[in-house]
């Protein structure tokens, strides 16, 4: 692959190898004068991610391709040092989106080479020219979370394990794979002390910017659940409970996690279950506290997405508000007229 391509796709393994043949860059040396352009561009990458949600590569930056390629691992190091999961997501998504913009018009050979390098099995389609056939396992790995109907496997052309996609769609799937790869790179633990002082000053500045931006799109207040803003699925489960009917495991999971994520205390939730025919106080308490994140792994579990609730037969069929959401927790806000959290 040509040098120019590595500047466009610096996350490829080949890019790192290529660069190390040219310059032997160690973190410690980033403070040196000759690497100033690298640090400057790295900081810009992160700032672009924060401000525009997309890294932009101007063609003039491609002239100094070595710096351009080097700026990527440097930016990754900066993000690692700031050590914030949300920033990791924002940054990796911005890099991946930049790659998508190039990939969607890339020549098919390069596209396939990059797919291969990312572990995605694809080949030119046996069907329409310019389309691609993609192994369904790889398709599912990356596209199972896309929620538009056209991405659902059931609506795709699937033949002998291969899913037919357009170039744009393949590029979109690669974007996912790239985001994963970049995200993983930023999880390598790195402390600010490992960086030369001039660089850690830049990191400090980035961190401040990030904190400011984070506050601005900060945590939207969760709307507390009450009788007026419950989604139909939750309403129905509560009705059935109050009639003394039995709820299946997936239903209990959905109900408990919904309530614990919308402002109900564990005690309130326990009270609801006490009327259930097979109520076992100790076991129920353990389960509810576990799901609410008060025990064990201390993660508070989220209810499943609407599509999962549908598959599990928990969704009774949504109402108009449900049309605008894809997760039951978005219901109360959507009902109030907001766009959902």
């Amino acid at each position: 692959m040509s040098v120019l391509r590595y500047a466009k796709y610096p996350f490829l393994r080949g890019a790192a190898a290529f660069v190390s043949e040219q310059v032997d860059l160690q973190l410690k040396e980033l403070g040196k004068e000759e690497f100033k352009p690298v640090v400057r561009r790295a900081k810009q990458r992160v700032m672009q991610a924060l401000k525009q949600r997309r890294v932009v590569t101007e063609s003039r930056e491609l002239v100094d391709y070595v710096s351009e390629v080097l700026s990527f691992p440097t930016a990754v190091a900066m993000v690692s040092a700031i050590n914030d999961d949300r920033l990791r997501s924002v940054y990796s998504l911005s890099e991946a989106k930049a790659a998508y913009e190039s990939l969607k018009d890339e020549d098919p050979k390069t596209l396939l080479a990059i797919s291969r390098e990312l572990g995605i099995r694809a080949k030119p389609s046996a069907g329409p020219a310019r389309d691609f056939d993609l192994d369904f396992e790889d398709y599912l790995l990356h596209a199972a979370r896309f929620h538009q109907p056209r991405w659902k496997l059931v609506n795709r052309k699937l033949d002998r394990g291969m899913v037919q996609v357009t170039q744009r769609e393949l590029a979109r799937i690669l974007q996912e794979a790239i985001q994963r790869r970049v995200y993983e790179k930023t999880t390598v633990p790195l402390s600010v002390e490992d960086l030369p002082e001039s660089v850690s000053l830049e990191v400090g500045e980035l961190r401040e910017n990030w904190e400011k931006i984070k506050r601005s799109f900060g945590a939207r207040e969760a709307v507390k659940d009450d009788e007026t803003n419950r989604p139909p699925c939750v309403k129905r489960m509560l009705e059935r409970l109050s009639k003394g009917e039995h709820l299946s495991h997936p239903e209990r999971f959905a109900l408990t996690t919904y309530l614990s994520n919308s402002g109900h205390a564990v005690e309130e939730i326990l009270g609801l279950y006490s009327s259930s025919p097979d109520f076992n106080a100790a076991r129920t308490e353990y389960q509810v506290r576990h799901l609410a994140g008060e025990m064990g792994s201390r993660t508070r579990y989220k209810p499943p997405k609407c599509s999962t609730m549908k598959t599990q037969g928990i969704c009774p069929g949504g109402d108009d508000v449900c049309q605008r959401i894809r997760h039951p927790l978005q219901y109360p806000a959507a009902k109030l007229g907001g766009k959902g959290g």
Binding site: L140, P149, K152, V154, N155
Partner: peptide
């Protein structure tokens, strides 16, 4: 042998395919 690493979301897509859940008549 195959598929053992696919997660719950992917398995759901598999099942939806088999059962025809989420089928969009316009798209087919």
């Amino acid at each position: 042998g195959r598929l053992s690493s696919i997660d719950q979301a992917a398995r759901k897509e598999l099942v939806d395919y088999l059962t025809g859940t989420g089928l969009d008549l316009g798209l087919v």
